[in-house]
Design a protein around this nucleic acid. Structure first.
Lengths: 256, 256
DNA sequence: GTGTAAGCTTGATCCAAGTCAACCGTAAAG
DNA sequence: CTTTACGGTTGACTTGGATCAAGCTTACAC
């Protein structure tokens, strides 16, 4: 279960790190196995080391714990090192909208930049670990490292594009299409992280899926059952096996 | 069709510009009356002048014309100088989702940063004028001007927060709530631009409103009629007068 | 002007998803 | 091992918004 990934060795410095304790190795972006998915993408060795300085705070969260809440002052964004999160917005009258589910290598907290306060809640859906990245220091560093700056802009833009996808889903798709899109998206993201594309555990409840997809939990449950009857998937509570990716994809396009 | 842009002359410049023709004066951020809403927000005089250099290309679009289309290479973002736009995403099967309506002072094209290609279409809903801001030059300049960098980040983040609002709307609100939220949002943005908060012309069709709100055009039309019956607004085709802001607001919260 | 097409309104009907309700399965607590 | 609580499934019924259809208004082309 290592994390040691000895990459190219420019000078003796990296070999030096190998002699120190595993827990210390784990604290650096330069040794993080998620670096190709996360903020460090595309950085050189020296640049990576400068980023390491910045990402000094790490935090573990238990399932159900909040990483941040809507309204609290913003001063850092967070990279998920391991675990699974949801973000949601609550209306005064109690209505909840889940705005996203985030997994390892993804960033949380970008919503807070605009008003200097977080505008949604981020909750761990399983025991998780995150790296806090003080935002003003990230801005400083990205003024110096072009690659970092550009990659950060790409990450923000990707979030906007993702949101457009969700708007499309909520605005134009019917229940089963939404759920199919959701499962295919999860599958694809698990794959990118080296997990099975066909078999995974859902970390969220039917109600949370429903909130994300603009459906009631009963509708989500029925759609799961229907997919199982059709032979597209095998469901048992939170355990999902995708049996027919093409079938699910077809279901999404079989409209006008 | 000019676009000549004589920029300062590092000293004596401001007085100098005043002597040249109005149309030329208009081409600079430093003289743009939208600068407090747009990218230049918070910049000093000298910083503004550096931004002027960057924003050299201006373009007029007729109603119905595309500013960019999904799939084309991305190399600039666009500031709306005057006019009104929609952005939309088209699915292969012909379904359309309008992802936003943009007015003067707002930025278009942020979606393209992530993949270096635009991922939606931007269409002028009335004759409009935009300023093109070459993105790599904006990145360079924001590496030098902290304020610009930070403000740009805020703008991107604001877009993410806005999208969350739309997700909330599409995911949890009923038809009349959605339309009320839409009208109040437009009203608020017109106000910020010095127009009447109570009276305005819609630049988009019922179908485009419907697409944005995840409703069919008939539902939008019926909701307008209903609002009129209730005395919240006066509608005549695209001409809207808001008669009871509080009533519309109440309508949005009158839920469990 | 007059004709035509695009956009808007309104009515009648239908259906996908919501609501309400009962029951089941699993997991943690005692 | 039993209890309890939470989450999930399934059924019966309701309903908000979609669909289908007709007529109206406005703006522009000729």
């Amino acid at each position: 279960m290592t994390w040691i990934k000895l990459t190219r060795v420019p000078d003796a410095s990296l070999t030096a790190t190998k002699t120190i304790s595993l827990s210390v190795i784990k604290t650096a972006c330069s040794n993080c196995n998620l670096r190709e998915l996360c903020l460090p993408f595309g950085l050189s060795i020296e640049e990576l080391e400068r980023l390491d300085d910045l990402v000094s705070t790490r935090r573990r969260l238990k399932r159900g714990e909040h990483l941040y809440r809507s309204g609290v002052p913003f001063d850092a964004i967070y990279a998920i090192r391991s675990g699974f999160f949801k973000t949601d917005v609550l209306l005064e009258d109690g209505r909840e909208q889940v705005t996203g589910f985030q997994m390892a290598g993804e960033l949380l907290g970008l919503d807070g930049i605009s008003s200097e306060h977080h505008t949604c809640n981020a909750v761990a859906l399983e025991d998780s670990e995150i790296c806090a990245i003080p935002f003003s220091r990230l801005e400083s560093l990205s003024r110096e490292i072009h690659t970092l700056q550009h990659h950060f802009h790409k990450v923000m833009s990707r979030e906007i594009v993702r949101d457009h996808g969700v708007m499309m889903l909520l605005g134009t798709m019917r229940a089963e299409e939404r759920l199919a899109a959701f499962l295919l998206n999860l599958s694809q993201r698990f794959t990118a992280r080296g997990f099975s594309h066909a078999e995974f555990y859902l970390r969220m409840t039917r109600e949370e899926i429903g909130s994300y997809l603009g459906l009631k939990l009963e509708t989500v449950s029925r759609a799961f059952s229907r997919f199982q009857e059709e032979g597209f998937i095998a469901v048992q509570q939170k355990h999902i096996r995708i049996l027919d990716v093409a079938g699910l994809k077809a279901l999404m396009n079989h409209r006008a």
